[in-house]
C-alpha cells in the first residue's frame, strides 16, 4: 500500500492535544509569516521552528517527505521561472536564458516558502484527527453569513476536509492512467493535443464517479449537510491560548528583524 499524503498519525504529543482551531490558526499565521519573511536568516529560523516542533511531536519523518513530493515539480517550476525571468546581475548565459543572482535568490526564497507551508500543513494534519479538523473549520466558519451563498459552515467544512482526503487518491489515479496510456505507445510531451485528453478525460470521469459514489454512501449513512450536534463541542484550553500567544510573539519578533 502506498501511504497517503497528509494523513493523521495518532499520538499523545503536545501538538496532538491542542484544539484544532489553534492549529488551523497557527498554520495560517505561519503561512503569512513565511511569505512576509524576506531574509534567508528569517526563513532559516522558521525552518528551525518546524524541526523543533516536528521532533518534539515524534512523527515519522516519512510523512513530511510525502507531503512535499507531489508538489515538487510545481516548486521546481517556480524556482526555474524565478531564476530565469528575474532581471538583475547576470550569473551566466545559456543561449537566450540568462539566470540572474536576484533570480536565484528569489527562486530559493519562494521554493523554501512553499516547502515550509507544506511542512506545517503536514504537521497539522498528522497531529489532528480529520474529524476534529472538520469540527474546527466548522466552528471558525459558523459566524460567517454563508447562508446567502446557499451553504452552511458544516457543509463547507466537510467539503474542505474531503478534498484534502481525496488528494492522494487523485495522485494515484494519475499514475495509473499514465501507465495505461504509455503501455499503448503514447509518449507524453510529444504532442500535447494528443496526450492531454488521454490523461485528463479518464481522470475527470474517475473523479466524477468517485464523487457520485461518495455522495450516495454519505447520504445512505445519514449525511444531510445540515449542522449536526457534535459529539464533543470544542473548547479552547489554556495551552491553546498560550501556544497562540507564543506564536504571535515569535512572528512579531521575526518580522521586526
Amino acid at each position: 500500500m502506498q501511504e497517503p499524503v497528509f494523513s493523521y498519525v495518532p499520538g499523545t504529543s503536545f501538538l496532538h492535544t491542542l484544539d484544532p482551531r489553534t492549529k488551523l490558526a497557527a498554520v495560517m499565521l505561519l503561512g503569512i509569516l513565511v511569505f512576509r519573511t524576506e531574509s534567508f536568516f528569517g526563513i532559516g529560523v522558521i525552518f528551525a521552528l518546524f524541526i523543533a516542533l516536528a521532533s518534539f511531536t515524534g512523527l515519522p519523518t516519512g510523512i513530511f517527505f510525502r507531503a512535499v513530493r507531489p508538489m515538487l515539480l510545481f516548486i521546481i517550476f517556480i524556482f526555474l521561472a524565478q531564476l530565469f525571468f528575474t532581471e538583475g546581475k547576470v550569473l551566466a548565459s545559456f543561449w537566450i536564458l540568462q539566470p540572474s543572482i536576484e533570480g536565484l535568490q528569489n527562486g530559493l526564497r519562494l521554493s523554501a516558502r512553499f516547502i515550509l507551508l507544506l511542512l506545517f500543513a503536514a504537521l497539522m494534519t498528522a497531529s489532528t484527527d480529520p474529524s476534529a479538523i472538520t469540527c474546527g473549520i466548522e466552528r471558525i466558519l459558523r459566524p460567517l453569513p454563508l447562508r446567502w451563498l446557499g451553504v452552511n459552515s458544516y457543509e463547507l467544512a466537510t467539503m474542505m476536509n474531503i478534498s484534502i482526503a481525496f488528494l492522494p487518491l487523485l495522485f494515484e489515479r494519475v499514475e495509473r492512467t499514465k501507465a495505461a496510456q504509455a503501455s499503448r505507445g503514447m509518449y507524453f510531451g510529444r504532442n500535447p493535443f494528443h496526450s492531454v485528453p488521454a490523461l485528463v478525460i479518464p481522470l475527470i470521469r474517475g473523479i466524477v464517479r468517485d464523487a457520485e459514489e461518495l455522495a450516495l454512501a454519505m447520504e445512505s449513512r445519514g449525511y444531510q449537510g445540515t449542522r449536526r450536534t457534535s459529539m464533543h463541542e470544542l473548547l479552547m484550553q489554556k495551552r491553546d491560548w498560550a501556544s497562540l500567544f507564543a506564536l504571535v510573539f515569535f512572528a512579531a519578533l521575526l518580522l521586526r528583524f
Binding site: 489515479r173 495509473r176 492512467t177 501507465a179 495505461a180 496510456q181 504509455a182 503501455s183 499503448r184 505507445g185 485528453p197 488521454a198 485528463v200 478525460i201 479518464p202 470521469r205 474517475g206 464517479r209
Partner: peptide, 19 residues
C-alpha cells in the same frame, strides 16, 4: 518502443484508460 508493441498491457481499472 518495439517492446511496447510486443507486450500488450491491461490494467485492472479499465475505466482509468478509456477516453
Amino acid at each position: 518502443k518495439e517492446v511496447k508493441r510486443r507486450i500488450g498491457m491491461v490494467f485492472q481499472q479499465a475505466a482509468d484508460q478509456l477516453f
